[in-house]
């Protein structure tokens, strides 16, 4: 099938720079490059996992793709439509095809609206169906996320974190989107509930063929759910590879450090780990050259001079790309 090969989402050179204001009259004194020149693709029905440490720009990237933040530069093409070029009105219509699930199940539902109101709203806004069919759709969605009709008239504060997250997922599904950004969708949940929600997302992906951008700081969670994985550091993608390759053969020194830092629930395997020195530099004053060089155990003089570009690894079996002067 041709659909398998043509990507659903293409992100090209996407940047989001926030103005930094200060001094008199709150003038713009600098720019914070939260996302800087990021490109990648997501195939139909696949999940792209995005990992990186706090503040590296994962959420900003997800929101810029959906134009919840206006991108500073770059293009986003979803299913042939250039999202970044749409005027406001057309964007509203395009929102049907792309949705988002948030991290904080406590903050992502309107506290004074019932589950039914929350789930009906997207269909009302887009004038989909009749009141009858809308209600049926809501019940069907609740069934998909494993909840029954008894929850319809309850308020968010009456649910546990995992249940709220399910409601958030149901809301994202109401418009039958082709693409969903899941921003730390399971990070706030307890392990036993986390695995329930992860399985749910994996199932939706299989059964409904939705593509996901799955954002998380947890490499283990990402591995389980992703086909492709991108590693982000200080606003840039430093490595992109199919999940198996990335975990079997991580190339970028940052990816390696990240992988070795994960605590392993097995006391007999206390491995030697790469402990990084120092802290993540401020995104306001990123280092010259390679953004990772201040903490990189293998930094060379060249790294301070020139920023490495994301390039295809030389032996090039799988499409494994890395931004590092070592390769």
């Amino acid at each position: 099938m041709n659909r398998e090969t043509a990507p659903l989402l293409r992100v090209e050179g996407l940047s989001k720079h926030f103005p930094v204001r200060g001094g008199f009259f709150r003038r713009v004194t600098g720019w914070l490059k939260a996302v800087d020149d990021v490109s990648f693709q997501i195939a139909h029905g696949q999940t792209f996992g995005l990992v990186g440490e706090s503040g590296c720009g994962k959420s900003t990237l997800g929101r810029a793709i959906l134009r919840l933040h206006e991108p500073t530069a770059g293009r986003v093409i979803l299913d042939g439509t250039e999202i970044t070029a749409l005027p406001r009105r057309a964007l509203t219509a395009a929102r049907r095809r792309m949705q988002i699930i948030f991290q904080d199940p406590y903050a992502s539902l309107s506290p004074r609206r019932t589950v039914l109101q929350t789930l009906l709203e997207p269909m009302e806004v887009h004038r989909i169906g009749t009141p009858r069919t809308r209600r049926e759709k809501v019940l069907e969605l609740l069934h998909i996320v494993g909840m029954g009709p008894e929850v319809l008239h309850r308020y968010p504060h009456e649910f546990s974190g995992g249940q709220r997250q399910r409601i958030g997922i149901a809301r994202a599904l109401t418009l039958d989107p082709r693409f969903i950004v899941a921003d730390e969708a399971v990070s706030a949940l307890d392990v036993s509930v986390q695995s329930q929600v992860l399985n749910l997302i994996a199932r939706l992906q299989r059964e409904l063929g939705i593509s996901f951008l799955f954002i998380s700081h947890d490499l283990a969670v990402v591995q389980h759910i992703s086909h492709q994985v991108g590693v982000m550091y200080l606003g840039r993608l430093v490595e992109i590879a199919p999940a198996e390759d990335l975990y079997r053969d991580p190339l970028h020194p940052y990816t390696r450090a990240l992988l070795s830092a994960i605590p392993v629930p097995d006391p007999k395997r206390r491995r030697k780990r790469i402990v990084l020195q120092g802290d993540v530099p401020s995104p306001l004053a990123p280092p010259s050259g390679c953004p990772f060089r201040t903490r990189c155990p293998e930094a060379m003089p060249l790294c301070a001079e020139r920023a490495p570009r994301l390039t295809q690894r030389h032996d090039g079996r799988a499409p494994h790309r890395v931004a590092c002067h070592l390769y």
Partner: peptide, 15 residues
Amino acid sequence: SIPRIREEKLPELPT
């Protein structure tokens, strides 16, 4: 149910 990095991906996480 802890997600951990595995050699072989499981079809479904135990819950």
